[in-house]
């Protein structure tokens, strides 16, 4: 998993979208290469990390998986704070989950850094025969709104890696091209210029190892 490795950047990324679209499984696929049909309903937030190499840099992705239920949104939106990336997930077989994308986007821009990198993710391509959201529709919407776009299957492990990689890459591009001024990115926590030594204190907690 590489969580004990040194890293140059920590990027906070949030997973948002309606209940049941597969956010938690996208997270577990990316961070643990696991998929679970009966994964628990997310209450509040859950959390996982993975460290990846991007060109010469080592980036630690700190990924926060949020509850999709409308009622808890007032709370979950408070967790967006400091996020520099977001995967806005819908289910390609459930049109309603796509219809609410606009609302989620507004929610995100209201609470997160204005420069946040957002990817629209149509999940569950393994259920292609039940598709109700055409790829082109979502793609157009993403283009119009300046979002990255990809369709994934957490179950078949299709495009999951690419989705996260692209988001992290785009965040890094923004940071290094100084499109985002340092002042406004309370969001990006830069580690010390020298890569941090292995055994970052926050990784030592016994409870983290359970993950």
């Amino acid at each position: 998993m590489g969580s004990d490795e040194a890293y140059n950047f920590v990027f906070k990324v949030v997973l948002i979208g309606e209940s049941g679209v597969g956010k938690s499984n996208l997270l577990s696929r990316f961070t643990k290469n696991e998929f679970n049909h009966d994964s628990r309903t997310t209450i509040g937030v859950e959390f996982s990390t993975r460290t990846i190499q991007l060109k010469s840099l080592i980036i630690k992705a700190q990924i926060w998986d949020t509850a999709g239920l409308e009622r808890y949104r007032a709370i979950t939106s408070a967790y967006y704070r400091g996020a520099v990336g977001a995967l806005l997930v819908y289910d390609i077989t459930k049109h309603l989950t796509y219809e609410s994308v606009e609302r989620w986007l507004k929610e995100l821009y209201d609470h997160a850094d204005p420069h946040i990198v957002v990817m629209l993710v149509g999940n569950k391509t393994d259920l292609g025969s039940e598709r109700s959201v055409p790829t082109e529709d979502a793609k157009d919407f993403a283009e119009k709104n300046g979002l990255l776009f990809l369709e994934t299957s957490a179950l078949e492990s299709t495009n999951v890696e690419t989705a996260f990689q692209n988001v992290l890459g785009e965040i890094h591009r923004k940071v290094s091209s100084k499109e985002v001024t340092r002042g406004s990115i309370s969001a990006v926590s830069l580690s010390s210029p020298v890569p941090r030594a292995a055994g970052d204190p926050e990784e030592k907690k016994p409870c983290c190892r359970n993950l």
Binding site: V45, E46, F47, Q62, Y79, E202, L211
Partner: peptide
């Protein structure tokens, strides 16, 4: 974020 993390975990 770290506080949130400690408490969530």
């Amino acid at each position: 974020n770290e506080i949130l993390k400690v408490c969530v975990l």
